[in-house]
Computed example of a mutant assay.
Amino acid sequence: MSCVAMEEERVKKVVFVTVGTTCFDALVKSVDSQNVRDELWKRGYTDLLIQMGRGCYIPSKISEEACSLNVDFFTFSPSIADYLRSASLVISHAGSGSIFETLRLGKPLIVVVNEDLMDNHQSELAEELAERKHLFCATPQTLHQTIEAMDSSSLIPYQPGDAMRVAMEINKFLGFPAE
C-alpha cells in the first residue's frame, strides 16, 4: 500500500507538544528527531503540532521518510486549551499548569523534564505523578524510548482533590463561622 493510501485511511491523531513560555529547545529537537517521528507514526499518529515558546530551534516540516507525520509549529498562543482538547497525545514540559490542564482533560501525557533547570522542583512533580501512573515521564534523551514503551491503557485517570475540607479548616482557624 502506498503512503498516500495509508495516510488517507488513517484517522487523524494529533500529538501536541508544548514548552510553555520558556525556551526548551532540547524538547523541540527531540520531537523533531526522525526516530521520535517514526515511532509516533508507527503508533498511528498523523500530525505533530509543536508550541515552541521562546526557543531558537526551528523544527522541520519535511521528513526524510515517505510515510510521515504532518508537522506544524508556532511560538505562542493566548490559550492552548483548544490544542490540548483536540490532541490524542500531549508531550509537555514539566510546568504544573500544563500538566494539570492536560490531566483534567484525561489526555495521555508524556512530561519531559528540563534537566538544565537549577533546583528543578518540576521534575519532582512529574516523577511523583508518573509513579502514581497518571502520566509518563521522560527527558529529551529518553523521549523516543518512552514513546516506544508507553501503554496508554496503563494510565490511571487523575482525580483532582476536593479543596473544601482545607478551606473549612482555614476558615475555622481564622474564626469565620461554619456554613
Rank of each mutant, 00 (worst) to 15 (best):
F136E: 10
K29S: 06
D72Y: 02
V31H: 09
L48G: 05
L69Q: 06
I110C: 01
N120D: 14
L84C: 01
P59I: 09
D162N: 15
V28I: 10
A87I: 10
K107Q: 12
N35Q: 14
S33I: 05
F24S: 00
S96R: 07
M118F: 12
M52D: 00
L129G: 04
R43E: 08
T139C: 03
N35G: 01
D151T: 06
F136Q: 05
T102L: 06
Y57F: 15
N120Y: 00
Q122T: 08
T146Y: 10
S92N: 06
A163L: 13
A81I: 12
F100P: 00
V36R: 03
Y45G: 02
M150W: 14
L48D: 05
L135G: 05
E124G: 06
L125T: 15
G97H: 10
Q51N: 00
L129V: 06
H121Y: 13
D47W: 05
T146W: 08
L125M: 12
G95S: 02
E148Q: 13
V166I: 10
C56T: 12
H144Y: 15
I80W: 09
P108H: 12
T102G: 04
I147H: 10
I58Q: 13
P157T: 08
R85F: 06
R104H: 12
A81Q: 13
S33W: 04
E101Q: 15
G53D: 06
M164A: 14
Q34G: 08
C137A: 10
R85T: 09
Y45N: 02
L135D: 10
Q159Y: 07
E124K: 07
I58E: 11
E101L: 14
D38G: 06
S63T: 08
P78E: 15
I156N: 09
H121P: 03
Q51P: 01
F136R: 04
E65C: 11
R132T: 01
F24P: 02
V71P: 01
P157W: 15
Q159W: 03
Q145P: 00
Y57E: 03
F73Y: 15
R132Y: 11
